[in-house]
Design a protein around this nucleic acid. Structure first.
Lengths: 210, 210
DNA sequence: CTTTCAAGTAACTTGACAGTTACTTTGTAT
DNA sequence: ATACAAAGTAACTGTCAAGTTACTTGAAAG
């Protein structure tokens, strides 16, 4: 009984690789076109598999979308856990993440438009992740690294806004700054801006070293 | 020669009213479903006109979308011109606008996803509007109402982010605060938060009255 | 009255797309 | 070897949606 652990013949069958390829093609297509605009045939062609296999593994188009979102969420949660704590580093780091993984921003955006305020895919896990993030904001406030007068939930939301908005609305960023968001110059500029901004967020009524 | 100026018979023909009805139905459908997801037949049914008329007046689906966006932009530009100048009033006012006109936020969001960083519908007029807004930020900075060390373009972008983000990503706002964005409690809370925030934005190193 | 053209309608065409059917191939266990 | 199930394929189906065709109705100018 040798349940094919080292089955790596490039020519032969390989269910896991097939699923992986489908998911990679799907995340591209869904983040670019959204759920309604995405074409199952395009995903199948890009994954170089027969469309039937997609239905075999994921049931239907929506099932595939759910799985794509589920995995992205897990990936992001892992990343955020390793992100820096100090606001002055955190804001630029979050922004850089949004720059590097625009698929993520776009998937959230499609989700917002498609499902609005209704219960969301993978709700429970996400609630936990966000609750942890709010808790960390509270700790920063207690330590005096963030203004303690501000509501922590609203503050977290604002930090997301400041870091993700330019990638979510690239046309507005371009109108406001004259630069394309994928232009390195824009990215440097925004990073510098966010570092300055972080100082304001700490509620710097006192000097830095008392 | 009496070119029908007062043709207001409710039962008869009325091209202007027909166009108006199409546009009203279209803005609803497009903001709810986006360009790809919107259905021409639904727009026609909601406008209580024959689909053919839609093609008659607007050419095709995209032509209709462009016109919808064009009008919304004009409407918003007019509103913004009347909005308060002081940051402490301005942020809550912008936020309230986003609450009242979610169609607007959603249309921009669909636009971002569909056309990304490419040249945008009605580009020139919008560039002018935004340039004026940036100029106003500069004036506020000169007057000491906004921190003069911050880049005005980035600052404007951030003000848009802080006020529009919750409506653009209602699912994230709900995860972060536990409240629905259409809940009045959420709206009051965010308004209060933004008022506090505006104080930070003024770079309050000195007291209010020198 | 009648001509004329814009306003308006219903039924149709064409293409695309999600999902299915009926079939073949391949690896593995008995 | 051979039975069996999972992996894989090509061609098909039903539906839906954008855009068109060929026609009718209404108002107003002469």
């Amino acid at each position: 009984m040798k349940t094919g652990q080292a089955t790596q013949k490039t020519g032969g069958r390989n269910p896991q690789q097939t699923q992986q390829r489908i998911l990679e093609a799907a995340v591209q297509e869904f983040s670019a076109k959204g759920f309604a605009g995405a074409r199952v045939d395009v995903i199948a062609r890009r994954a170089r598999i027969n469309k039937r296999m997609l239905y075999h593994y994921f049931g239907d188009k929506e099932g595939l979308f759910r799985e794509v979102l589920r995995r992205k969420i897990a990936e992001r949660a892992a990343w955020l856990a390793t992100a820096p704590e100090e606001p002055m580093e955190r804001l630029p780091a979050w922004f850089q993440l949004a720059c590097r993984d625009r698929e993520w921003v776009q998937l959230l955006q499609w989700e917002a438009l498609q499902w609005g305020e209704k219960k969301v895919i993978d709700e429970e896990r996400r609630q936990e992740n966000v609750a942890r993030a709010v808790e960390r904001v509270r700790q920063q406030q207690a330590k005096g690294l963030l203004d303690p007068d501000l509501d922590p939930g609203q503050l977290l939301l604002s930090m997301m806004a400041l870091t993700a908005y330019p990638m979510a609305f690239p046309q507005l960023a371009r109108l406001a700054t004259g630069l394309s968001v994928s232009d390195e110059k824009f990215q440097k500029q925004r990073e510098a801006f966010l570092r300055q901004f972080a100082v304001l967020l700490s509620g710097n009524k006192a000097g830095p070293t008392p």
